[in-house]
């Protein structure tokens, strides 16, 4: 596979760090080299948050992703901050129910997913992040062989690893959200 350098970014509380962790865990289960690095500090308490996730067949050098080939943006400040750093040909996933701006660059594969609206409508409030993870899997692993780093089963195992035992009731909701995202043909 090609090195996958991803940034998940949004507001604190949207679950961008969790989404990145699920992707990282999926890589781990597939015996890939992986790293997950969060932004930290005051932004964790309500401002913008993001994490860098690297998945590779080789040991990871710098875990800080400065030129991502995948960007998941869940709010406008994050899209504005990172869109010009994405590698040409990179994949961009946007929560279009929160961001009404369109990306001007034409060298990217951009997917507008109304994740928050879908989550709201399907009774999965707070799981827009996982809808985007489903979509990410669909675009990166299912559709694009070069970046494929995990199977659908692995992704499911990763979700099981990441949902803490005290929130076990959330497991199925997370799965439903991923399902929706993966099926979402937008």
């Amino acid at each position: 596979m090609k090195n996958l350098n991803m940034i998940f970014a949004g507001f604190g509380g949207q679950g961008v760090l969790f989404a990145g962790k699920v992707a990282a865990y999926a890589g781990l289960i597939e015996n890939k080299e992986i790293s997950w690095l969060p932004s930290y500090g005051p932004e964790m308490r309500g401002g913008t948050a993001n994490c860098s996730v690297c998945i590779s067949d080789e040991p990871i050098g710098s875990p800080l992703v400065t030129t991502p080939n995948v960007l998941v943006a869940m709010n406008l400040p994050s899209l504005d901050k990172f869109i010009n750093t994405v590698e040409p040909g990179g994949t961009v996933l946007i929560d279009s129910s929160l961001i009404d701006k369109k990306v001007e660059r034409i060298d990217l594969s951009v997917h507008y997913v109304p994740a928050s609206a879908i989550a709201e409508e399907k009774g999965l409030k707070g799981l827009a992040n996982m809808i985007l993870v489903g979509k990410l899997f669909h675009e990166v692993c299912a559709a694009n062989g070069d970046f494929g780093f995990c199977t659908r089963e692995t992704l499911d195992q990763a979700i099981q690893k990441c949902v803490p035992a005290r929130k076990a009731e959330m497991l199925d909701f997370n799965r439903q959200a991923v399902e929706l995202g993966a099926a979402c043909g937008i």
């Binding site: 962790k21 990282a24 781990l28 992986i34 790293s35 997950w36 690095l37 969060p38 930290y40 990871i60 875990p63 800080l64």
Partner: peptide
């Protein structure tokens, strides 16, 4: 350092 402290790896 903060990077090593905050990052996750297997």
């Amino acid at each position: 350092d903060g990077m090593l402290g905050q990052m996750m790896e297997p």
